[in-house]
């Protein structure tokens, strides 16, 4: 049980206002400013109890709503290992890639999870283990993996710019 990943389970259509309230968008932009307000209107216990290595499991259309990158940036900053959802809204999906936050689109895993089940996510093999069930999850196209593997879009861009200068 020791290496079991802690799961934060939420429903469908979790929007950006629930992940990070709009009223803070112009006053909070650094990880330290964002962290205390993460999921504030959805789950007040999240910001104080979340630990590095935790996983968020959710339904369809996770991250819908505004072009607001604080949720992706904040979830990465508190150490969320991955978000596993049935599907994602596209701006959030891009924001996560750009922040280097791992999103896994895997309805089978969401279906297989019942409260209290033991979940282990193995990133090297690309397998989610839920109790005894093993589910393979899809990976990203190579062009996009390159962005994430460089630590997100800005480090990737920096590298490209420096290279073009030489």
């Amino acid at each position: 049980m020791s290496n079991q990943d802690k799961i934060w389970k939420y429903g469908d259509d979790i929007n950006t206002d629930m992940l990070f309230p709009g009223k803070y968008t112009y006053t909070c932009s650094t990880p330290d400013e964002i962290k205390p307000h993460l999921l504030e209107d959805l789950d007040p216990s999240f910001a104080t109890e979340v630990k590095s290595g935790d996983i968020i499991m959710a339904g369809k259309n996770f991250g819908c709503g505004s072009s607001r990158e604080q949720p992706a940036l904040g979830l990465r900053a508190v150490g969320i290992k991955a978000v596993i959802a049935r599907s994602y809204a596209r701006i959030f999906y891009r924001a996560a890639i750009n922040q280097g936050l791992l999103l896994i689109e895997c309805p089978e895993a969401v279906d297989a999870y019942i409260d209290g089940a033991e979940v282990n996510l193995d990133l090297t093999t690309g397998i989610i283990r839920i109790d005894d069930k093993e589910i393979e999850f899809p990976t990203l196209p190579a062009e996009i993996l390159e962005i994430r593997d460089n630590g997100g879009l800005l480090p990737y861009t920096r590298k490209k710019l420096e290279a073009s200068r030489k």
Binding site: A72, L73, I91, R94, A95, N98, L153, L154, Y156
Partner: peptide, 8 residues
């Protein structure tokens, strides 16, 4: 798009 992408 998100802010980081706008920056890039």
């Amino acid at each position: 798009i998100d802010r980081t992408e706008a920056a890039a």
